[in-house]
């Protein structure tokens, strides 16, 4: 079950304010990935003020996400939970054989993870929190996120002759 876009956005926006007011932290997802790497790496980038990554709210936040989306699926009409590698319309765009498709997704993830750290945030930190704060670098990042995603998918469709 999916809400109309505007309603989903009102829910996200309200959530951002509640989280900030209650905890003093602005929403931002991607740097939470660092906290999962911390126990396994000695690179200073992953060493926080207080060593021990399990001491971060970001890690617990990330762990909560799949529980929340499971509840959302569970409470949808016609609920059926079955693990699948199907990706809807993306299956027309990506290679169909799993041993090519998964490496392509992996490379997409590498590019996205590296890009998020270089940009200093992802969709949530820049496009939502950053623009809500009227922060100029976040406007730049969000516009480039869109422009680049758009350009890439359009180009891919053009090249594939779809």
């Amino acid at each position: 079950m999916v809400w109309p876009g505007w309603l989903g956005g009102v829910a996200v926006g309200t959530y951002v304010i509640i989280q900030h007011w209650v905890s003093g932290r602005m929403l931002g997802v991607s740097s939470g990935y660092c906290n999962f790497i911390s126990p396994f790496s000695r690179l200073s980038f992953f060493q926080n003020a207080e060593h021990g990554s399990f001491n971060s709210w970001r890690l617990w936040f990330l762990l909560g996400l799949p529980i929340g989306s499971f509840i959302a699926a569970f409470t949808s009409p016609g609920f059926e939970w079955h693990p699948t590698f199907d990706m809807g319309l993306y299956d027309d765009l990506l290679p169909t054989v799993w041993w090519v498709k998964l490496p392509v997704l992996f490379i997409g993830g590498v590019v996205m993870g590296l890009g998020a750290r270089m940009a200093g945030g992802c969709t949530s930190g820049h496009a939502i929190s950053g623009i809500a704060l009227l922060n100029p670098p976040s406007f730049a990042a969000a516009i480039l996120f869109f422009a680049s995603g758009l350009g890439f998918v359009q180009l891919l469709f053009y090249l594939l002759g779809r």
Binding site: G113, M118, F146, F152
Partner: peptide
């Protein structure tokens, strides 16, 4: 970084 992120997105 933002351009790379968009591609991955």
């Amino acid at each position: 970084g933002a351009i790379l992120f968009g591609v991955g997105w």
